[in-house]
Amino acid sequence: METNFKTIILSDIHLGTKGSKAKEVVRFLKQHECENLILNGDIIDGWQLKKSGSWKRKHTRVFNRILKMIDSNKTKVFYLRGNHDDFLDQVLPLEIGRLSILKDMIYESNGRRYFITHGDVFDNITTNLRWIAYLGDIGYTFLLWLNTQVNLYRRKKGLPYFSLSQYVKSKVKSAVTYIDDFEKELCKIAKSKNCDGIICGHIHKAEIRNIDGIDYYNSGDWVESLSALAEDHKGNWQLIYYNELDFSQTDKNKVVKMKDITLNQAKNFY
């Protein structure tokens, strides 16, 4: 599978929470190279850190990896503000070398224009009724905890992973309606900005589809679906799911490299 891309987009990593898959993010970024890395909001979960979240070494390693990409691969990194990392409002816009912190951006590639935004600014619940947004966050956190317990049981029984929150979203009519409205409204915004497409996150639902002539791309999340949006050098977009990747060759190379280091150490010793 291709590992060198023009642009990779990640969103909703929620560093600082128990559900964040920080180790998987680092492993993914080690295997994939790109000219542009766009972090499309909710990378750090400031809401949870204020309440009961905790910052761990594995969360720091995500940023260490990103800084290495900037330094070693000359990757340009764009960090767009989300609702859970709204503390960035105090510093944006900010540009330091190849790192830019922005509210949103226009991305132009292969003759097409894309409006990139986390998506929360178009969410009336988040912007106008903030206390309901916080209440929804508590409910989602509980669902993630329950999801962990369900999948521990399923793993013991040899059953595949099951996303409880995605199942609930698909069954609750109001949630389905909300997602549909969310996607259509974002496409209207893209059209008003003379863009060919919209790229977002926020709702934790990875998607590539066309809505009324506008390309709608959602990069998903790194709490459940563990998905990324990637553009090759010809302008083609695809969704990459971590759980579908084959790391066996990478792991073999790592073992060989460690053996070489050990052999060299032994030679130096003698």
Score class of each variant (00 low, 15 high):
Ile9Gly: 00
Asn194Met: 06
Tyr79Pro: 01
Phe87Gln: 15
Leu229Trp: 01
Arg155Met: 10
Trp145Pro: 05
Gly197Pro: 03
Ala266Gly: 10
Ala228Arg: 00
Ile261Val: 12
Leu102Pro: 07
Ile214Tyr: 02
Pro160Asn: 00
Gln166Gly: 06
Glu224Ser: 05
Ile38Pro: 00
Gly136Trp: 13
Ser20Glu: 02
Glu207Cys: 11
Thr250Pro: 10
Asp246His: 06
Asp181Gln: 12
Lys21Leu: 12
Met258Tyr: 15
Met69Asn: 15
Thr250Ser: 13
Gly119Lys: 02
Ile9Leu: 00
Ile44Asn: 00
Asp85Tyr: 01
Ala228Ile: 00
Thr7Glu: 02
Leu229Met: 12
Leu129Arg: 04
Arg81Trp: 07
Phe63Gly: 01
Asn151Ser: 07
His118Pro: 03
Gly53Thr: 02
Trp131Cys: 08
Trp131Glu: 11
Val223Gln: 07
Lys18Arg: 15
His59Asn: 09
Ala266Val: 14
Gly213Tyr: 06
Glu2Ala: 09
Gln149Leu: 11
Ser100Tyr: 15
Asp221Pro: 03
Asp12Arg: 01
Val176Arg: 09
Ile13Leu: 14
Ile138Asn: 07
Arg65Gly: 09
Tyr270Ile: 11
Ile208Asn: 01
Ala230His: 13
Ser11Val: 00
Phe87Met: 15
Trp47Phe: 09
Leu245Gly: 13
Glu35Ala: 01
Gly158Asp: 05
Val91Arg: 14
Ser109Trp: 04
Lys30Gly: 04
Asn124His: 12
Tyr114Gln: 01
Glu108Lys: 12
Gln48Leu: 06
Met1Ser: 14
Leu129Glu: 08
Met258Cys: 11
Gly41Cys: 05
Met105Phe: 10
Asp120Lys: 09
Gln265Ser: 12
